[in-house]
């Protein structure tokens, strides 16, 4: 009796297990989907190549820079300029100011988000402080550079691109901190 049911039962258990795996597969699939569609305004987390395309001087795009330390992040974190008008294809550099007002070392991670989401596909960062974690000792400040260009293929409907950074305190999760904190006697 039970023997008769084994093949089908095994198949169904396999489907269930595969779907459990699929739940986790949704995580990378989602990232791929976001990369393709610009859903959620995620930008690439690695550098784009610097050999940009031809500069399109026929139009201008306004880039807005927003910086927000998360509410648990004590750093002061501000863009040097809040607005910039660029031609698609031109390479620009802008800086963000970070200052750690506390007396301890804090590691920060900036998370970028671009709006409108689809424009994220055309916003290329050649160099960005958001690619890596940033470490700043207590009382110190620093300028963090961002080098970028806007893809000339940007659809005409986008005249403004907003780039927002949220800065998180990732000190406790940071891997290379152990040495430093023992040094500071914490």
């Amino acid at each position: 009796m039970a023997f008769k049911h084994k093949p089908l039962t095994t198949k169904l258990v396999f489907i269930a297990l595969a779907m459990f795996g699929f739940g986790f597969a949704l995580v990378p699939l989602y990232d791929v989907f976001c990369d393709l569609t610009g859903l959620n305004g995620k930008t690439a987390s690695t550098a784009a190549s610097a050999d940009a395309a031809i500069v399109d001087t026929s139009r201008e795009v306004v880039i807005e820079f927003i910086a927000r330390p998360n509410k648990q992040m004590p750093w002061v974190f501000e863009p040097e300029v809040t607005r910039m008008t660029v031609h698609p294809g031109e390479i620009h550099i802008t800086n963000y100011l970070a200052q750690n007002p506390t007396s301890r070392l804090i590691v920060g991670q900036a998370v970028p988000s671009v709006s409108p989401g689809q424009a994220a596909l055309y916003f290329h960062k050649i160099e960005c402080f958001c690619f890596t974690q940033q470490r700043l000792a207590g009382g110190k400040d620093m300028l963090m550079p961002l080098q970028f260009y806007v893809d000339p293929a940007l659809p005409r409907q986008f005249s403004t691109i907003t780039l927002s950074y949220t800065l998180y305190d990732v000190t406790s999760a940071s891997t290379d901190l152990t040495a430093t904190s023992s040094q500071l006697g914490e």
Partner: peptide, 11 residues
Amino acid sequence: LHGRAGTAMQA
């Protein structure tokens, strides 16, 4: 002033 990371306590 600075909150406590990983909790609901804000800066």
